[in-house]
Amino acid sequence: MLELERLANHTGDLGALAGDVGFLPTASYCGRLRGDFLNLTALLCGSRFGRGMVRPGGVAFDLEEGRRQQFLERLESASRDVANAVDLLWNSASVNARFEGTGTVSPETSVAWGSSGPRRGPAGWSGMCGMIFRPASSASPRSRFRRGRRETSLPARTCGGWKFRRSIAFIREQIASFPDGPVRANVGAIKPGHFVVTLVEGWRGEVCHTALTNDEGRFSRYKIVDPSFHNWTGLAMSLRDQQISDFPLCNKSFNLSYCGHDL
């Protein structure tokens, strides 16, 4: 589900970046293709935004054989069209010239501000998630982003480094290796007096949820730190000594949450 969200959002971002430099073909195609990935999510759970799917103890819906086939066929068709639209963007000299040198942030600055996700760039995949979980397989989020050159331009780092073919391969791998059994377990009541920290690699970067329960087993505090929390400063840093006309490109590269939390 998260990988589908990543596919949808990065495809949309690429389209938006293309639109900002006036390259309309990719802007239009990616605008539609983003929807194809959202519709794949809806195929699984009935909601384009994954609502109702993830539940305490598992997920609400299973993936039966017919649906699996349909899912893989539609994924294949969407990924073919994205490859076409994205290659068109990166093969265009005028687009590359406009992106070049726009919104560079040094790895040191990124680390200092705690930037996370693909925007952090060559300094590596966001710190904590990578350090704690150390994903071993080729399917780790880190492997789906190319390691960029030092101080590479922001649009290139955001989406150029995103190997969407790896994202597709990752989904295929996951679907092929689904275990049998129930999709949801009964988790029972929330334990009183507990403290839980979770870290998830969301599409923008690291999402940290912290929950505290009181004596009655109710939440007494629930705190979320999301990638946008750190990355807004990254956006400000990317615009240092830049022209104001570079703002849309830098802003779209980060594509941060304007309100609430990244979930």
Binding site: G12, S28, G31, R34, F49, R51, C259, G260
Partner: peptide, 20 residues
Amino acid sequence: VSAAGCNACEADLNVLGPSF
């Protein structure tokens, strides 16, 4: 105006551009 929406409405309203 995004007043603590969950980003779903925001994302779908965002694509109501000329092509959509």
